[in-house]
Design a protein around this nucleic acid. Sequence first.
DNA 1: AAGTGTTTACCCCCCT
DNA 2: AGGGGGGTAAACACTT
Length: 322
Amino acid sequence: MPRPGKNSYSEQKPPYSYISLTAMAIQNSTEKMLPLSDIYKFIMDRFPYYRENTQRWQNSLRHNLSFNDCFIKIPRRPEQPGKGSFWALHPDCGDMFENGSFLRRRKRFKLLRAEHMACKSSPMMHYFHHQGKLSGGHHEHQGPAAAVGRLPHFQSYGSINSRQSGGFKHPFAIENIIGRDYKGVMTSGLPITSVMQHLGYPVPAQLSSVVNSMWPHVGMLSDSMSAMPLPVSSEYAPFGVSMKDLYHHASGQTLPTMPVPIKPTPSMGPMPGLSGLPPGPSHLCSSSSFPIKRQKNVLTLISQFFLYKPTSHILNYIETSC
DNA sequence: AAGTGTTTACCCCCCT
DNA sequence: AGGGGGGTAAACACTT
C-alpha cells in the first residue's frame, strides 16, 4: 500500500477507490457537480497512474457512478450543451467514509427502494425534496431554514457528516470548503421569510408575523448557519474557493496536495449538549425562551408552506437558478 | 462514431 | 463459509 501524500503515484496505483476519487473530484469542484469528462480530468491530473489504461478504469468509474446511490445525476441546462449529465454527491452520503478518510468507506450508501425509485426517476426533484425533508429520522429537529440551506447547490455536503462526527471537520467538509467567503452573507441577518421570498416563494404577512412573534431574535439567519450559503447573485457559483483554501484544515494545518487519511483526535467526541440537533439552526431552540415543541410546530408550519409548493414552481426555481 | 449511462456477471480481498 | 466492498469486463442502449 503506497503512502499517499509524500511521493508521486506515477508508478503505483493510488489507494483510493473509484468512489473516493469521484467524490474527491466532485467535492473539489466549485459547483459540487461535474460532468464525467471533468471527473476523468481531475483524476488524471492528480494521479498519473490513471493516465494509462483509460478505457479500463473509466469503464469501472462509470460503473460506479451508476451502481452507487451516493452519486446522483444533475441534468444539463439547455444553455449548457454537452454530452452527459453532471454528477453530484447525494446529500446524505456525507458520512460515507470512515473517519472522514477517503481510503475506506464505513458502509455502502444505499437508498431505500422507494427512495431509489424516486431518485432514479427524477433525480433533481428527489434531491430537492430530500434536501428539504424535515420529518422523521435525524432531520426531525431541522427547521425550515435548514431546508433552505439544503436546497440544491446552496449546500451539497458536510452537514450530516459534521453532525455525526462531532467537532471533527474533514477538510472536504463544507465547513472547511466554504470558509470565510459566505460569512458576510451569513451574518447579514436575512430573515427566514426574506430567504423564502428570495427563492420565489410568496410569504403571506400572516406567516411573517407568526415567525417574528415566535422568534423575535432568531428569525434571522446568522453565521451559526454557516452551512447554509445564500444566493448572492443569480449566478450559480456559491463555492468559489481556491485550492489553497480547500486544503487548509480548520486547525490551520496545511494538508499535502494529495488527500491523506485523517485520524480523529481524542477530542473529537460528540458535540456537548443539543444532542440530535444540527449545528446550524441549533440556536433556534437553545437560546429561545419559547418551548421547543411550540417552535417545532412553527417550523413544521413553515416547512409545509415551503415544501408543499407545486412541482412546477420548484422546477421553475431549479431551472432558473441552477 | 464517440461518449455516456446502465446492467449483469465474475472475481478478489477482508472481516465476522 | 458467507457477506460486503471494490475492481474489471462486457453487452447494450442512449445521446451528441
